[in-house]
Computed example of a mutant assay.
Amino acid sequence: MLDLGAPEAPQRQQIGPDAWLLKGFALKDADALLAAIEHVAAQAPFRHQITPGGYQMSAAMSSCGAYGWVTDRHGYRYSALDPQSNQPWPTMPALFGELAERAARSAGFAHFAPEACLINRYTTGARMGLHQDKDEQDLNAPIVSISLGAPITFLFGGAHRIDPTSRWLLEHGDVVVWGGESRLYFHGVSPLGKKASHPQTGAVRYNLTFRKVR
């Protein structure tokens, strides 16, 4: 059993096998994270990518690190180059990697070294349907997801799309970590509500998702 320890234990909620919601884990770094997002987006602007089926994603996306995640008519994949500029993605800010590694370790996953950070920007009505993170070659590493800005409802299901989902409110500074048995569990977020807002971002929610790719 994972030794949650004190005093952080009351802020942790187990949402599934090998899956944890760490309430407020990134809160003290939130201002620096938001500033870093702006820096990344200045180099790799947010864009609404197109799925292989021809649908435009409602959340705008950017990336940083050794790889970025892209989708188009040719499929889902990781690329070392930003297809808009044909240049490498921006370097992952040191704080990003350090915080992701610390969150993973806190959830029981040691030595996490993310190679990609996907940055999603949600505005009113934007959502992410149930899906698996399965484009990575290394499925032994966990997924670390940091929420900033307006609150949103996170859906966490099971190994099959039809499995029941639990609902968890993600607020500014919350972090979700899942791996092990839950690594390929379906997950997503409900549409960002019309009244959802945060003093620093307004009606916008940012999500940083860290992954070990290779």
Rank of each mutant, 00 (worst) to 15 (best):
F112G: 04
M92L: 00
T91G: 11
C117M: 09
A113F: 03
S106R: 14
L118S: 13
F109R: 12
A100R: 00
P114Y: 00
A100N: 06
A116E: 15
N120W: 08
A104K: 09
A107R: 03
R121D: 15
L99Y: 01
N120A: 10
A104R: 10
G97T: 10
E101W: 04
P114F: 01
P114I: 04
F109S: 05
E115I: 02
A103T: 07
C117W: 03
R121F: 12
F109W: 09
A100Q: 01
T91A: 14
E115K: 03
A94T: 09
E98K: 14
G97I: 02
A100H: 02
S106M: 08
E115G: 07
L118E: 15
F96A: 08
R121G: 15
F96N: 05
P114V: 03
R121V: 13
A110I: 10
T91N: 08
I119P: 14
E98V: 07
A94F: 01
M92T: 09
A94R: 01
A116D: 12
P114S: 09
A107H: 14
R102L: 02
A110Y: 13
C117P: 12
L118F: 02
L118C: 14
F112I: 06
P114W: 06
F109A: 04
R105K: 13
T91S: 06
F96Y: 13
L118D: 11
M92E: 10
A104Q: 11
E98P: 05
P114N: 08
M92S: 06
L95E: 12
L99I: 00
A116T: 15
L95S: 00
H111L: 12
S106W: 01
L118P: 15
T91D: 08
F112V: 04
P114M: 08
C117T: 10
G97F: 01
H111P: 06
A100V: 01
F109P: 06
L118Y: 11
L118W: 13
S106V: 05
L118V: 05
